[in-house]
Design a binder for these strands. Sequence first.
DNA 1: TTCATTCAGGACCAAGCTAGTCCTGTTTTG
DNA 2: CAAAACAGGACTAGCTTGGTCCTGAATGAA
Lengths: 166, 166
Amino acid sequence: MLKLSKLTDYAVVVLVRLGDDFALQTSGGIAAATGVPEPTVAKVLKIMTTAGLVCSQRGARGGYRLARSLSAIPVADVITAIDGPIALTACVEHSPAICDSSALCPVKGRWDRVNSAILDALSGISLADMRPPARDVVPVQPLSEASAMQSYHPAGASVSTTAFVE
Amino acid sequence: MLKLSKLTDYAVVVLVRLGDDFALQTSGGIAAATGVPEPTVAKVLKIMTTAGLVCSQRGARGGYRLARSLSAIPVADVITAIDGPIALTACVEHSPAICDSSALCPVKGRWDRVNSAILDALSGISLADMRPPARDVVPVQPLSEASAMQSYHPAGASVSTTAFVE
DNA sequence: TTCATTCAGGACCAAGCTAGTCCTGTTTTG
DNA sequence: CAAAACAGGACTAGCTTGGTCCTGAATGAA
Ligand code: FES
Ligand code: FES
């Protein structure tokens, strides 16, 4: 369906939030600030850490911090981190899948163009571009447990619903 | 995973095949010519007909024919026909889904730019560009110069599926 | 030291979607 | 009428995603 996974959507929200403050922020704090469920925030941040987009600090008073500035993180990086390499079809290079019948295929190698066009588009937009123009930055909550969570639950924040009618 | 559905891949193969001949072609014949399983070809063609990309002729000696020339069919149209409107997230304009929490969402409306970048990329490439090199006369339009376009990897590039193998 | 805190890394399961098949019409030709 | 081909769904198995949870390791503070 040419859609992004929900986690990617969450990731952008979380990363943008991280970009609001240089101090270490805990996953719980981010969850509280963004309204994204804490376990999900944690999951996203783990992935982001593995991908090298954020740095983590363990232990008490630990937390996360951006590894680079928002403007240095193209959207493509976030997508790649979560969804894996951008490969529209199994036949683009870098794709993990291998085509058995490249000899027969009439469109062999032809998706690469399309794929790189999209890759270029996604590489040209950074997370800084995803940040709200002038938004009231919610101050980092030191520790207050994430109880008063206002659920942001992107029921629509992502592509979940299936009401796609032309 | 930011991937296309398999059917879209099939559709391109089938449409390109249709573009090889102006005569009516039956789904069975196309299946034989492309190696795509006949039921799948039929399914794809039905969808294409509904979308108006091909014309059909019922009855004995019936078949399918392109409604427009390959060069007049952007890849975006095929994707839209099969996967529905291109909407990376539920929050892009034109998306049928509605975001409940647009008031809270930190990245509200920010995906639109990403989405249209991709839409532009996909609209700028036509099926004629997807034809095998031998018949490919139309140059691809550059969308953004990001670069070193990744040269195709002839080997290993391929659509998928074992169904292609006889 | 000992403990609370916080991240790391998976395992796990339910739900939704995709791919592929099949079946029952309907239209057209001969 | 019979055969050829498309029209339009219904249906199911399998995969992927989303979301939760559990155990363990690192860190800092009491
Ligand atoms: S989640 Fe809908 S506006 Fe962002
Ligand atoms: S299907 Fe693999 S090269 Fe086209």
